[in-house]
């Protein structure tokens, strides 16, 4: 068993967990924050993406213990007020259907916009499609997800 302590969505949380506990299970089962999803178990689909110390990470492939002391943001914590510009853009552009991949898409979208801004690079359509390599959606055909991220990139 390990004691893990981290900041999740601005709140300090601590818990004693089995050593093998994945970060996603810590978030979903221990903290009952169920917006972060598990879609594939093999780091392919990106439904589990959260931000760890400001970087997008697949929480299904990281131990909770590895996030000890980290600052974690989940989909429940991204909005400062009503909706984050990325969340609003997905609503504006019909960037979601069943909603299961959506939290991961939004977390990846925010991360890519932040990175491109920090590096002074342009996040065009081709770049968004390449950056989304780690996120699978079965409903939307990606068309409106790309539009959503493009809109948010202009507003963030």
């Amino acid at each position: 068993m390990s004691t893990v302590s981290m900041t999740v969505n601005g709140k300090v949380v601590a818990s004693v967990v089995e050593d093998r506990t994945l970060l996603v299970d810590f978030i979903r089962e221990h903290l009952r924050l169920t917006g972060t999803h598990v879609g594939c178990d093999t780091s392919q689909c990106g439904a589990c993406v959260v931000h760890v110390n400001g970087k997008a990470m697949k929480s299904c492939t990281m131990l909770a213990a590895a996030a000890d002391g980290a600052d974690v943001t989940t989909i429940e914590g991204v909005a400062n007020g009503d909706l984050h510009p990325m969340q609003k853009a997905f609503n504006d552009n019909h960037g979601l259907q069943c909603g299961f991949c959506t939290p991961g898409m939004i977390m990846s979208g925010i991360d890519m916009v932040n990175r491109y801004k920090a590096e002074g690079k342009t996040l065009d359509e081709a770049a968004i499609r390449a950056e989304l390599e780690g996120n699978i959606c079965r409903c939307t055909g990606y068309h409106n997800i790309v539009k959503s991220i493009q809109q948010a990139a202009g507003e963030m």
Partner: peptide, 21 residues
Amino acid sequence: VKRKEDKRFLTGSGRYTDDIQ
């Protein structure tokens, strides 16, 4: 019309079967 159901999915408040305890 923009979707009425979006907000819960966008904010992580959807309620899928595995989310239920």
